[in-house]
């Protein structure tokens, strides 16, 4: 039984490795310098795939305070890649990642984004003395928010200059358009120059016909009068 399992595992692993070069570029990597991360934002304690291109040797290493350890990257068909683990005690934010290879430190640098563990906006260690304003979570449909009401934690900062992020950083593109006024791409519409050329063709054709007719009529009249 064990050997069948091992064989299956082995076969699946081979398939996975075989598939990687073909599909590696289809994954939604975020490119920061020459270092790519997948997924684009990681939770503490999770795995992140780190990919770098441009190193010549067999080995490369990713170094970052956000990772549990220095991560050795192995060469594959298109560069160097590793599955690294994000520390579980790291705070949300972006952390520099340094790539060492070919005998040099820091040949490439990237930024690893760490987002909060749970999915909510609220921080766990928000002070208890600041109760959330009523209806804060459902503010969407309530009309304009009073900006002054939002920041019950304003007293937390004596100077706004020392402000830190309370919540996690956004990570996704904005869905901010319904398409009702979308501008056509240049090759969709015929465009003014195209219309002018077409119109000119019609004019020339019409003018020639008119010209011919006048000429013929003059000739015809002359002949007829005789």
């Amino acid at each position: 039984m064990l050997s069948v399992r091992s064989a299956l595992c082995g076969a699946l692993t081979l398939l996975a490795f075989g598939a990687v070069p073909a599909h590696a570029l289809d994954e939604p990597y975020i490119r920061v310098g020459a270092v790519d991360f997948y997924p684009v934002a990681s939770r503490p304690g999770s795995e992140v795939k780190i990919r770098v291109s441009g190193c010549m040797g067999e080995r490369a290493t990713a170094v970052s305070e956000a990772l549990v350890a220095r991560a050795p990257l192995a060469r594959d068909a298109i560069g160097h890649v590793a599955d690294a683990t994000v520390r579980s005690d790291v705070r949300p934010g972006s952390y520099p990642v340094r790539i060492d290879c070919d005998g040099h430190d820091g040949v490439a640098r990237g930024e690893l984004t760490v987002v909060e563990h749970d999915g909510r906006d609220r921080h766990h260690h928000e002070p208890d003395s600041y109760p959330a304003p009523p209806g804060r979570e459902d503010a969407r449909e309530d009309g304009r928010e009073d900006g002054g009401r939002e920041d019950s934690r304003e007293d937390d900062f004596s100077e706004g200059e020392h402000e830190r992020h309370e919540g996690r950083m956004p990570v996704a593109p904005e869905p901010a358009g319904g398409g009702g006024a979308a501008r056509m791409a240049p090759d969709d519409a015929p465009g003014m120059p195209g219309l002018i050329v077409g119109g000119t063709g019609v004019l020339i054709a019409g003018g020639l016909i008119w010209h011919r007719r006048r000429g013929n009529a003059a000739d015809g009249n002359d002949t007829g009068k005789r």
Binding site: G160, E161, E163, E166, A176, G177, G180, A181, A182
Partner: peptide, 23 residues
Amino acid sequence: DGTRPGSRGAAVLVGHVDTERAP
């Protein structure tokens, strides 16, 4: 939950470019 405009950091403002019918 991010930076306030005028404070250190990047404050983020988002608005629609159009609705399903109009700008």
